[in-house]
Design a protein around this nucleic acid. Structure first.
Ligand code: ZN
Ligand code: ZN
Ligand code: ZN
Ligand code: ZN
Lengths: 142, 142
DNA sequence: AAGTAAATGATACAATGTCTCAACTAGCAC
DNA sequence: GTGCTAGTTGAGACATTGTATCATTTACTT
């Protein structure tokens, strides 16, 4: 379940602590990307004295290790577990999001890998534009 | 040149002010995405008394209007003019970025447009993984 | 069980972003 | 042009978010 998390942390030379478990667990079972503040609040349910600084230290660590991803939502940065989908259709007017399924980018990854020597682990594909409501709004309210 | 900016602002019912001109001009001629603080500093070269609050008000406005885009870089949020490319290959280890050219997402846009009623104006495609250096580092320094 | 370096949490601090409000001005009507 | 008015501005107080420091604790090794 969260075995990947533990081994990943270990193999990178980091210790497995209650604080890190708590932070990851929170992301893991969240159904939507969370802000750092939310992670802290929820994390304290799992690890009583979880410190704010630790959360801010852990989240970027998880990103560096590939266990989580940082997303820019209207309202600030949010984090989500790597497993979650990252294909969205975002309205630039109101910020509404629609998660997507299909994706054409897979093929390109291999190509990039060979071309630049990068180890391509994933990708983020976001379409942006206007939702039906905001299209109407733009017309009517000038 | 920046005619699109002016008409876009007008047609959405916003006024054309020196402050907004300055902010947009800064983004416009920047070769790399800028933080809000950088926009403020550079903007004051163009409009002496440009206020910090105005910058923080204007940047999201430009995003809502489709004139700029917000990007999440390691180190914080950065803004760039809509024209700039948004196809990157980002290293999750060190944050290094490589701008890309080709893209397979265009076709999907039309499809989404019909399916959800969204007006799809563009997309952001980001591959993430490890640069060659960070791959070595991960092996050697555990 | 003991030793040790990594990690934590509290706190102070810095950076980033938001709100309020009096003063100003872009756009419009005349 | 002259005035009107609502949108906009800039200053500064405030709130939030993120970082640095450091004494204490603790996960891992032996
Ligand atoms: Zn919308
Ligand atoms: Zn995909
Ligand atoms: Zn790297
Ligand atoms: Zn593309």
């Amino acid at each position: 379940m969260s075995a990947g998390f533990e081994t990943r942390l270990r193999e990178a030379g980091y210790r497995l602590t209650p604080a890190r478990r708590a932070v990851f667990a929170v992301l893991r079972q969240a159904s939507t990307p969370l802000s750092a503040a939310e992670v802290w609040r929820l994390g304290r349910a799992r690890h009583a004295g979880l410190g704010r600084a630790t959360v801010y230290r852990t989240l970027p660590l998880l990103v560096r290790l590939g266990l989580a991803r940082a997303l820019l939502a209207p309202g600030g940065v949010r984090y989500q577990c790597s497993e979650g989908g990252t294909h969205r259709l975002v309205c630039r007017g109101c910020g509404a999001e629609l998660p997507l399924s299909g994706c054409p980018a897979g093929a390109l990854a291999q190509e990039l890998s060979e071309k630049y020597g990068y180890l391509v682990e994933g990708h983020l594909l976001e379409f942006y534009g206007l939702c039906p409501d905001c299209q109407r709004r733009m017309r009517h309210e000038v």
